[in-house]
Amino acid sequence: MGYKDLSPLVRRSIWPLLGLAVLLLANVLIAPEFFSVEIKDGRLYGSLIDVMNRAAPVALLAIGMTLVIATGGIDLSVGSVMAIAGAVSAGLIVSGVDNIALVVGGGLLAGVAAGFVNGFLVGYFGIQPIVATLILMVAGRGIAQLINSGQIVTFHHDAFEFLGVGYFFGLPFPIVLVVIAFVLVQLLMRRTALGMFVEGVGANASASHHIGINDKLIKLMVYCVSGLCAALAGMIAAADIGGSDANNAGLWLELDAILAVVIGGASLMGGRFSVFLSIIGALIIQTLTITIILSGVPPKFNLLIKAAAIVIILLLQSPEFHRQVARLKKKRGPKHAS
């Protein structure tokens, strides 16, 4: 059976999965103990668990970003929203709020509010997504600093820190959160018609509007989901270090999140999406980082390798590139008479 006989779903999934497999294989070859997972005190330990744990914030961002990109948008503000949510939770804790539901709820509310602003600007104001979310990307870090008057707030709160360092059924809690978020979004998108609406708006917003889809509301919703995911990622980051740093929390993670979605095979023009493949994309980014470290290449090459990876993936997705390759193949002599 040739590549062309595969169903579109398999064809789309095969490249990201193959990429991850190759990277994992490379890691095992470099460091044979890479796959070993041990259980200590009922907790799982090992490089593989570590990769997943560290990929969790970007994976969460990627879940929200996937939906935004599926509508043909982009959310540049997620890094700043992470900082805002972390600052809100930290601020609540140091001001004496002990109830974990209030602390987490406050952070999530901040994320939804940020998403609402983005979604409103994009959906109802009709502003280009890059620009609309740029506003919060720039102002968001200022707002995060404003919340705690420019201080780096540190705190100690067992229940909140559980978000970042806790274990649940032997797994680090961030991984569990990613799984929960994935299942929820997947149910919402694939068990209802929402997923189809999102893809419809991304493929052709005005056509969707004419067949009765409320395209503005759909856009508002995806940015709210993205804000929610970013808030969760921000609280994990804050809980992980036991403090909120408005300047550095989630810095440049919006780029990693976009990259994860692109690696997952989604088109930036919108349309079809797969949340699962975006999470695979986040895992690929984290595994690549580990591969670079394991193989002894100095970490300063990280960004260069990432840049090369983006260009290669973009070219592989470009129809024009396929045409050029096809032309090259033809020049070398056609194999098939047809």
């Binding site: 740029l134 506003i135 919060l136 720039v138 102002a139 968001g140 870090r141 200022g142 707002i143 600093q145 404003l146 008057s149 420019g150 408005a246």
Partner: peptide, 13 residues
């Protein structure tokens, strides 16, 4: 404080 710069620029944007 200096972070007001970012907020004001965001507002202007």
């Amino acid at each position: 404080s200096s972070w007001w710069t970012k907020i004001v620029i965001g507002l202007l944007l």
